[in-house]
């Protein structure tokens, strides 16, 4: 595996694929996610071909007449980045069969989508892509809401988070439902590689990108990607919050390869999930409610149970791939 210093030496002049001058917020997690994925793809000798779902990343990197992409790039609509990239990958195969593409060139088909374009709007096309078995790496940058349009609730928003469509008020403590478990949904397609990653664990992140790109079939990477603007944290907190998410079991780092679970990071000590909530302004109103303790305890219980379940799954699925 490559280390940070080696990457720096390799990319001090070389193009990464995403350029400067994009208009994402200062401190945004999305361009860091893109950088990590593209650098590893390039490092492994792949030519990246990128597709984007509608979202922050898409609107901020492709404002006419500018583009922040120096690799082949396509955007179609909100709900169909997976379908679009399926088409791109199929077209590539057809051209290769006809001998119109050099045999020695390695391409990596990478789709980037936010949580809106993945958990909710693009779920159907994602499922289709996984079922048909296109060799595409789908990278989810999960900022837990429709942040591009101004902080609306999504299937990924955690309970108690203050959004414009599920505000914390007198009656309701913000969103009342738990986050959708997208990795399980993807893993249920069986012949896939699905993993979670965090910006605070770059070596783990790189290893997963490498595994995903070399996987013979569709792969999915869920990246915890803080939104400094609507999580109400300072611009420089992106990595800090990611670290806290891993340390509080809120964002466990694991992978599922054809049904085989592996927890890739097992912190020796965990912090209470309350610390993760306290660090962010989006939970401030929740934490000042009289029933705050109840909701925090419920979330703590959930993350504990999920962690135990993951460890159990790791044990029982060891060396037992489903396909």
């Amino acid at each position: 595996p490559v280390n940070i210093k080696q990457l720096a030496q390799e990319f001090d002049k070389k193009e990464i694929g995403i350029t400067q001058g994009h208009r994402l917020c200062p401190g945004c997690g999305a361009p860091i996610t893109v950088k990590f994925v593209m650098m590893i793809a390039r490092h492994l000798g792949y030519e990246p071909v990128v597709g984007l779902a509608t979202g922050c990343l898409e609107v901020s990197t492709s404002i006419y007449p500018y583009t922040a992409w120096s690799v082949p790039y396509i955007h179609n609509a909100f709900e169909n980045v997976a379908a679009t990239m399926s088409g791109v990958e199929t077209a590539y195969k057809a051209l290769k069969n006809k001998g119109k593409i050099p045999e020695d060139k390695k391409y990596a088909f990478i789709a980037f989508g936010g949580d809106g374009g993945t958990y909710d709007i693009g779920l159907q096309s994602l499922s289709g892509m996984l079922e048909r078995g296109h060799k595409v790496l789908y990278v989810l940058y999960d900022n837990e809401g429709y942040m591009n349009t101004g902080n609306q609730r999504s299937g990924s928003t955690p309970p108690g988070s203050d959004t414009t469509t599920a505000p914390v008020g007198k009656k309701l403590p913000g969103k009342v439902q738990l986050k959708k478990n997208i990795v399980e949904i993807v893993a249920a397609h069986e012949n896939v590689y699905a993993a979670t990653a965090s910006l605070s664990e770059p070596m783990d992140f790189f290893a997963k990108v490498e595994k995903a790109l070399n996987f013979d079939g569709p792969s999915f990477l869920a990246v915890f990607s803080p939104c400094v603007r609507f999580w109400r944290v300072n611009d420089d907190k992106t990595v800090e919050i990611s670290k806290l998410a891993v340390e509080t079991k809120y964002w466990p780092l694991y992978e599922v390869e054809r049904g085989v679970y592996r927890v890739t990071r097992k912190p020796r000590q965990f912090k209470p999930v309350e610390e993760f909530l306290k660090a962010q302004g989006r939970f401030r109103k929740l934490l000042s409610r009289p029933d705050a303790k109840e909701i925090v305890d419920e979330l703590q219980e959930y993350v504990d149970r999920r962690w135990e379940r993951l460890l159990t799954l790791e044990e029982v699925t060891k060396d037992k791939p489903i396909r």
Partner: peptide, 17 residues
């Protein structure tokens, strides 16, 4: 190279690490 790795805007200038 942590700063270089994390800079969202690729605004860190480095030469050979």
């Amino acid at each position: 190279m942590f700063c270089w790795l994390y800079c969202p805007d690729q605004a860190i200038i480095q030469e050979g690490g």
